[in-house]
Design a binder for these strands. Structure first.
Lengths: 173, 173
DNA sequence: TAGTTTGTTCATTCTTAACTGAACAAAGAG
DNA sequence: CTCTTTGTTCAGTTAAGAATGAACAAACTA
């Protein structure tokens, strides 16, 4: 359940700490492996690694988890949790939940954590459409080849946007 | 046509160099503006800015363009062109074309430059599916909540993959 | 042969942004 | 009130990777 990088970590030191280094998987625990891989994947998507690890943690442990627990178990600073939790909340992937008589912040996975990813994706594509449209207007009309290529690109993004809007509806049921 | 950042740039110095700084658009030429914006967008997508500018250049100027011309007009090192052109070629967005009796490399936009973007996107999603499947196998069966959340996520990616495969076919006609 | 041109590779520099620790504000608890 | 707990913000550090210049290899010219 723990990252077990610190030397004094009880879970780590009580075990027979077999061959470290090399391509050995850091920990035997498949859940922490999964969480770590989610971090890597997020990084590949251009997102901060910690954000991916947080999502991974929620997938594994579900239910409302408190702020400090996240920082502790993922072994990162509270500052990082704060920033990334806010980002993920803004993205609609996790949400803050209240706990009566508890001052701490609790978070959990949102209803459909992945929908917003698509919405963000759509936003980017619409920005590109905008860019293309403006280019089309401002570039001299006699540059026929250019306008043809712009049109081709616009067609692509139009189709892609439609496709993803359809997907979005499909996932919303 | 040029970046005109260097002081000795003829195009720059012959004009009445009006108010620099502020939000002023660097150049009046809408085509270089477009190329620059493509660079910015690429950057936002996690791709190198030069890659985006190269694509922008091809959209504007079409036809086979030689290696050295790219370096010159985009005002970047040949090394950058080399690296990015290779990446874009691997991605299937541009392609090398031969010119009889010419030793230089020429490039042009590929048939459907954007299809491969989707394929790359699909690859990433399939990698995630793989990750999810492996996690599902390795995580203890009695963690019911975890498996449920994994299943939900898998469902999402399955739907998304299908949707994008459909889109791909649609664009291939 | 030596000299040019063209593209790639490598080591280095530079930029961007992730991450951290520390200072801070807000909200209890005593 | 003081002392603790909790989360945010900010300045500084660090790490990743984009871009470069120089060295190099390959292919042609003379």
């Amino acid at each position: 359940m723990e990252n077990s990088f610190k030397d004094d970590d009880p879970l780590q030191s009580e075990e027979s700490n077999q061959e470290w280094g090399g391509a050995a998987e850091q920990t035997l625990d498949p859940t922490v492996l999964f969480i770590e891989q989610m971090g890597i994947h997020a990084q590949g998507d251009g997102a901060p690694r910690i954000a991916g690890r947080i999502i991974g943690y929620f997938i594994v442990h579900g239910g409302p988890v408190c702020f400090s627990q996240l920082a502790q178990e993922l072994q990162v600073s509270r500052a990082s949790i704060s920033t990334n939790a806010r980002t993920l909340t803004d993205l609609g992937m996790i949400e803050k939940v209240a706990r009566p008589g508890d001052r701490q912040d609790y978070y959990q996975l949102a209803n459909n954590p992945y929908l917003r990813m698509i919405e963000t994706y759509l936003l980017r594509m619409r920005a590109m459409q905008d860019l293309l449209q403006k280019a089309d207007k401002s570039i001299p009309a006699d540059m026929h080849g250019t306008h043809a290529r712009l049109a081709q690109m616009r067609h692509f993004f139009e189709t892609a946007v439609q496709s993803n809007e359809r997907l979005l509806k499909e996932l919303e049921q």
